[in-house]
Design a binder for these strands. Structure first.
Lengths: 217, 217
DNA sequence: GTTTATTTTCTATAGTTGTAGAGAATAAAC
DNA sequence: GTTTATTCTCTACAACTATAGAAAATAAAC
């Protein structure tokens, strides 16, 4: 507790003042402010000034942490996926097959206010990504991971007999992923306050479709 | 052919010069230029100057046809739906049930360069609509129509025995619509040139899932 | 207290944007 | 040719933007 090490603050024998703010942590705070602004005012309203003010700072205060606006946005967008992926990991922990798949989808679907706000952030991200190969890559990498995870669950579910549909796992995974993405749009465009879009029922209905007679004509 | 009527050019007994350009037609040309710019440079690159230049005019030339940029964008966005809906009408003409549903989806899915470009336009539109209730309304009205059309097809397909799944039509329609929307995202974010995303196979797979044993548990 | 590095504010700047509107160019009717 | 309404170009402008960077404020170490 007392006597904190000073080693990291000694440079060429000269004692220096330690950093006061944790830069990584500050970056996350700024990302949070950025999310709030985008969710509330859209990408158009997300100016450096607005974001700084939302985070409680003046105009130029973001510079030392994000040299340009694009850096900030890219980081902010990436972290939507980071956060979602972390929640997915928590929620699918120890599960497999249909149970894991259900948990995965329920975590991605915009079923509460928080995730509807994330949908309001991911859509501006997609819009940027349409004409920005690097951002599109961030999206693509996450989607590839998701597709692989979904296929893994499907195969496990087949092995245990929960999935019997005579449709290839690759095709099913693509369907399901597109359903998840489409749900984001429906939720993000709905008037503020709506939270029930029947997405959970759609998921259950879809999973039910997978468990019919094997190879049935 | 000769002697074109002058009636519409007489105002209070004074002969006036007839309008030279068809304003409605010009508006459509401008919308077309707007689409091209958005597809190529994104919404950020869609400035009034760029759009005017793309249409072959100088800076202020759009004013008489669209008083503000927002007017132009709203009109341009609406026409994406108009065009799609018109194609849908042509393609489903005379069909019903599963055949109509298939034709409907094949027309909405981004299966060729033209419709992938439309996906690149609809995503910026969605982004705007997230924080613009009026634009969100344009989207919502089309989606409500589409949902109704899909449910109608599903019911017809049930009546003829092509659909036997023990899942409510409302739920199925929601699933399918979200799949169609999600496909737009995948196509729009893919690197230029890719055109095959397996969406047609996904559609066939989905329709196959609907035709299994009725109510089978 | 002083010193020193870090952090933040604030002003300045160069560029871009939508929009306005005067004037030039255009084309039909006579 | 002239007249007249329409159409378009071009300049102007006010607002806003990201960014740069000097200066002030801050906080730890002594």
């Amino acid at each position: 507790m007392a006597h904190k090490s000073r080693d990291q603050n000694i440079f060429r024998g000269v004692a220096t003042v330690p950093k006061i703010v944790d830069h990584d942590e500050r970056r996350l705070e700024l990302v949070d402010a950025t999310w709030r602004i985008i969710a509330r005012q859209g990408l158009e309203g997300a100016t450096m000034r607005e974001i700084a003010m939302e985070a409680g700072f003046a105009n130029g205060a973001l510079k030392p942490y994000f040299p340009t606006k694009d850096t900030l946005l890219e980081f902010a967008f990436s972290h939507v996926f980071n956060r979602t992926n972390q929640r997915i990991a928590e929620v699918t922990e120890g599960k497999s097959g249909l149970a894991a798949l259900r948990a995965f989808c329920l975590e991605v679907l915009p079923l509460d206010e928080e995730r509807i706000n994330e949908a309001r952030i991911v859509i501006p991200f997609w819009q940027r990504a349409v004409n920005d190969a690097q951002k599109a890559g961030v999206h693509q990498r996450s989607m590839d991971e998701w597709l692989a995870a979904i296929r893994r669950c499907l195969q496990e579910a087949r092995d245990s007999g929960d999935v019997t549909a005579a449709v290839d796992n690759h095709v099913l995974a693509g369907q399901l992923l597109n359903m998840l993405l489409g749900a984001q749009i429906e939720a993000a465009l709905a008037p503020e306050g709506r939270t029930d879009f029947g997405h959970a029922a759609q998921l259950e209905g879809y999973l039910a479709l997978l468990g019919k007679i094997p190879g049935g004509k």
